[in-house]
Amino acid sequence: MAENEDAPIAPWSSNGPGLLIHAAGPLEPDTLTGILRSAANARAALKSGAAIEVVVQGPGVRLLTEESPVSGVISHARQLEVEVLACGNSMRSVGLEAENFAPGVGTVPAAVAHLAERQWQGWAYVRL
């Protein structure tokens, strides 16, 4: 798994598998904001140390850039230790590089493969 220099990503938490939230397709800023708020709500409700990832796949990866209207919400999610990850295949499709992303946004080579790996590791999967 490759990532932005500012986004260290643990394979899973020390307390076991985590929660993976999948955001796919074209996303509006309000939609991604709601997804990241759901991740923040999960952080508050789940036991301390539970890993939470939001994987963005499709043209919605454009909303993960530094200039995005949701960059503040991304920053807040990262402060809560919610990993925000972009699909590498989607990035190539829309012409983005990891350095275009807001600080703390990481990448995975292929969202579909990452989702499968996390499920095989016992992670809970939610698609929003």
Rank of each mutant, 00 (worst) to 15 (best):
S38G: 13
A39M: 12
A39S: 09
A40I: 14
A40Q: 13
N41M: 09
N41S: 12
N41L: 03
A45I: 00
A45S: 06
A45R: 07
L46N: 14
K47I: 06
K47F: 10
K47G: 15
S48Q: 05
A50V: 15
A50Y: 01
A51R: 05
E53C: 01
E53N: 06
V54W: 09
V54E: 04
V56W: 01
G58F: 14
G58V: 00
G58I: 02
G58E: 09
V61Q: 02
V61S: 01
V61P: 01
R62Y: 00
L63G: 09
L63P: 08
T65D: 03
T65M: 06
G72P: 03
G72T: 01
G72Q: 07
G72R: 02
V73G: 03
V73H: 00
V73K: 08
H76K: 11
A77T: 12
A77W: 15
R78H: 10
V82Q: 07
V82T: 07
V82M: 10
E83Q: 15
V84P: 11
V84C: 11
V84H: 11
L85E: 00
A86D: 12
C87R: 01
C87G: 00
C87F: 10
C87E: 00
G88W: 11
S90G: 05
M91A: 10
M91R: 13
S93N: 12
V94T: 12
V94K: 08
G95H: 13
L96S: 03
L96A: 08
E97S: 12
E97L: 03
A98P: 05
E99Q: 15
E99Y: 10
N100M: 14
F101A: 01
F101G: 00
A102S: 11
P103G: 03
G104V: 08
G104I: 02
G106C: 02
T107I: 13
T107F: 14
V108G: 07
V108E: 13
V108T: 14
P109D: 03
P109M: 11
P109E: 07
